[in-house]
Simulated assay, not measured.
Amino acid sequence: MIGNLGRIGPARLFVHFVVLLIVLIWLLPTLGIFVTALRDRDQIVVSGWWTAFAGSTRTTAVRLAGTDKATQDGPNYVISGNVSSDSNGNGKIESFGMRVQDPAAYKAGAPADIGNGETLTVNADGSYRYQKNAAFDADTRGKRIYLTISTPPEFTLQNYRTVLTGEGIGQSFINSLTVTIPATIIPILIAAFAAYALAWMEFPGRALLIALVVGLIVVPLQMSLIPLLRIYNEIGQIFGVPSKTYPGIWMAHTAFGLPLAIYLLRNYIAGLPKEIIESARVDGASDFDIFVKIILPLSFPALASFAIFQFLWVWNDLLIAMVFLGTDKDHLVLTAALNALLGSRGGNWEILTASAFVTIIIPLLVFFGLQRYLVRGLLAGSVKGG
């Protein structure tokens, strides 16, 4: 192992370090969202997610019982009770104080001399004993004190249950899958046929079509969105088809994803060994047989790499979904539902983070499931051509 490290140059070590640093920077927000979504709302308010495993500390103000609750104990007068129900938490009281500027002036469990012959003892469990060597002044409201409370780490799945059952995110999750899966499969199927034709079939205008595909890659989505929507609505009026349907958004995503898909797959397929295809043709195989039995199995890395890109693009899309599906609650996708949730529940971080993590679960599974094909497919498609 030491010998291998010795053969790695400083430049290569630096590159490895930079890559590792970038990976950690990208993972930190995801980890923060995941941890925050599992925390209680009160803990989110008082401390950051990086303190979740160490607990949190907060300061709160409470009032002791009024002087009408005082009892005489020999020469002293005593007010006793428990402040746990007033401190809004199940944490442990670490210290207390009489002023907001110094809420940790006295340790919990230790008697504190607060002057005028008065002593106050507040225990960690919230019980207290307020004692004076003479009768208390009339103050039915009770004395205000400040508590420093430490709360142990606490995690819950309630945030996810709230999101999936009460916020409409569950239905939006299904809607996103309904949009994303066909919008990923359809362009791959069409692009695979087109890529094979552009790579291995001779016909007039092939070079022009290849140049057109490359040109379409750089066309901004926003430039073609409105014309496409108008054409779609006009076709719907002619055939009496509703304008806000899933097939419409499938076709829109297919149209926007086809140029890149054809470009990547065509370059990859053109780089496959020519001898294999020629041998199949000598044996009498048709173009369809060659495509199905030879090209598709050999092109799986390229297909998988584009599937990752297309799936992530469609899953995270908001603009096309709102244009072609609208804001109807029954057709709202996850990104649109999360955007609406941000407006209505902007202060509920536990709900927002749980919703956000629900949206990234599927993309993470897809990426990690197919990432071994990503680099291999993209590199082959970028350096090989025919």
Score class of each variant (00 low, 15 high):
residue 293 K to D: 15
residue 357 F to K: 08
residue 5 L to Q: 13
residue 66 G to V: 08
residue 120 L to D: 12
residue 287 D to F: 14
residue 224 S to G: 06
residue 310 Q to G: 01
residue 294 I to D: 15
residue 154 E to Y: 11
residue 154 E to G: 12
residue 184 T to H: 10
residue 233 N to T: 14
residue 158 Q to K: 14
residue 158 Q to H: 13
residue 320 I to A: 04
residue 272 L to N: 01
residue 380 A to C: 10
residue 269 I to N: 07
residue 219 V to E: 05
residue 386 G to M: 14
residue 220 P to M: 06
residue 318 L to V: 01
residue 187 P to I: 13
residue 8 I to W: 08
residue 345 R to P: 00
residue 77 Y to V: 09
residue 81 G to P: 00
residue 215 G to C: 04
residue 334 L to G: 09
residue 75 P to G: 07
residue 361 I to Q: 03
residue 41 R to I: 04
residue 135 A to I: 13
residue 283 D to R: 09
residue 42 D to W: 12
residue 366 V to Y: 11
residue 196 Y to M: 09
residue 187 P to S: 09
residue 124 A to T: 11
residue 320 I to Q: 03
residue 275 E to A: 12
residue 311 F to H: 00
residue 316 N to H: 00
residue 287 D to N: 15
residue 111 P to A: 04
residue 374 L to D: 04
residue 291 F to E: 10
residue 240 G to T: 04
residue 250 W to M: 02
residue 200 W to K: 14
residue 335 T to N: 10
residue 293 K to M: 15
residue 41 R to V: 08
residue 375 V to H: 06
residue 341 L to V: 02
residue 285 A to G: 12
residue 91 G to N: 03
residue 339 N to D: 13
residue 116 N to L: 07
residue 30 T to W: 05
residue 32 G to L: 06
residue 211 A to Q: 10
residue 328 D to Y: 07
residue 98 M to F: 11
residue 70 A to K: 07
residue 92 K to R: 12
residue 28 L to D: 00
residue 360 I to V: 15
residue 186 I to T: 13
residue 298 L to P: 10
residue 282 V to S: 11
